[in-house]
């Protein structure tokens, strides 16, 4: 066992050192955990971007343990990387990472998990690349508004208002609060009047969402529901199953209720292909990964960071918008 570890260690050292022997920029990137579907996409995007730009990138797996990640960062600094990209395990301990980078005078780009502004402001070469959580809500709302613009008949009772049902995630969760609030805001902003006829907490869970949606269909009557907004795809799919059980969303345009979610997971895309679900919102890992690498490369080489093609907000943040995904643009 120990031999294997030793071997692996030597191998990593060899890999790391040979990549540093290049004249090019080297990027040290730490991911909080490799086994995370979203971070997997993020990681692939970073890898692709660095291959394209010629920068060398070395990515480590923090195994969801801040101590492990700290050791990895120390090693990167000791090996003289030019820039760090950090996806912290615990975003509240990011100050330590910033201090380390500051004392080594290496720029650091945080991704996906946002340090507090105070932390970022403590070092002029600390940046953050990510998405604004509330945007996922906004875009889900826009999907519904867009649908109602394109399909006036979706307003079944012709009162000019959108009677919707909301399926919420775990109570108190940041995403649940923001997505619930901003999806309604977006409908309003698009000129419709949203009316919440029912809402319930389904804990991100397909099964619970299905049971709850069933009860709503019975109590409100499917003919009175004009839209279903779910905080994530799983709950949206649960709602879809419940609707299908009541012969809705099975292809008959007269029996259709638009359902939107967030995440763009494979099951949701599949349901959209079948016409059972209206749309979902994608957290754009590709653009986030690419921009993080571009920003890091620019910082390391001393180039102007405003020239990389992404807007830098407050000289600290790159906000990558969420993307709407609807039928056909899978």
């Amino acid at each position: 066992m120990r031999k294997i570890f030793m071997l692996a260690f030597i191998l990593i050292l060899a890999l790391v050192s040979c990549s540093y022997s290049q004249e090019n920029i080297t990027i040290g990137a730490c991911i909080y955990r490799f086994n995370d579907a979203f971070m997997l996409r993020f990681r692939n995007a970073m890898q692709a971007e660095s291959e394209k730009s010629g920068a060398k990138i070395s990515i480590t797996d923090g195994q969801d343990d801040q101590n492990t990640q700290d050791a990895q960062i120390d090693e990167f600094i000791a090996n003289g990387v030019n820039v760090l990209i950090i996806n912290p395990v615990d975003r509240m301990t990011s100050q330590g990472i910033i201090d380390k980078a500051k004392s080594a005078n290496i720029p650091v780009v945080f991704i996906n998990r946002e340090p507090t502004p105070e932390m970022l402001n403590s070092y002029e070469r600390a940046y953050y690349v990510g998405a604004k959580a509330e945007e996922s809500g906004t875009q889900a709302g826009q999907l519904i508004a867009d649908y109602f613009k394109a399909h006036p008949e979706a307003d079944k009772n012709h009162d000019g208002k959108i009677q919707f049902v909301m399926l919420k995630g775990q109570n108190g969760h940041q995403d649940m609060i923001l997505r619930s609030k901003y999806s309604v805001e977006a409908i309003k902003a698009a000129g419709f009047e949203p009316v919440e006829i029912a809402s319930a907490i389904a804990n991100w869970d397909k099964l619970q969402a299905m049971n709850i949606m069933n009860a709503f269909i019975m109590s409100i009557g499917p003919e009175n529901i004009e839209a279903v907004i779910a905080n994530n795809d799983e709950m949206a799919l649960g709602a879809v199953e419940a609707l299908k059980n009541n012969d809705y969303n099975k292809g008959d345009p007269a029996l259709y209720i638009p359902v939107v979610g967030v995440d763009a997971n494979a099951s949701a895309l599949d349901a959209m292909d079948k016409g059972e679900m209206l749309g979902t919102v994608l957290n754009d890992a590709d653009n986030q990964g690419a921009s993080a690498v571009k920003l890091a490369a620019a910082l390391a080489s001393g180039k102007d960071i405003n020239s990389i093609g992404y807007t830098i907000t407050d000289n600290k943040y790159i906000w990558i918008p969420y993307q709407k995904v609807t039928r056909g643009d899978k």
Binding site: D36, L237, S267
Partner: peptide
């Protein structure tokens, strides 16, 4: 559930004959 290629994605695309067992 976390095994590649699934990587903790919710399992979907259930065969209709299986779904029938519950629906």
């Amino acid at each position: 559930f976390d095994m590649p290629p699934n990587n903790s994605q919710p399992i979907g695309g259930i065969r209709p004959d299986f779904a029938q067992l519950g629906q």
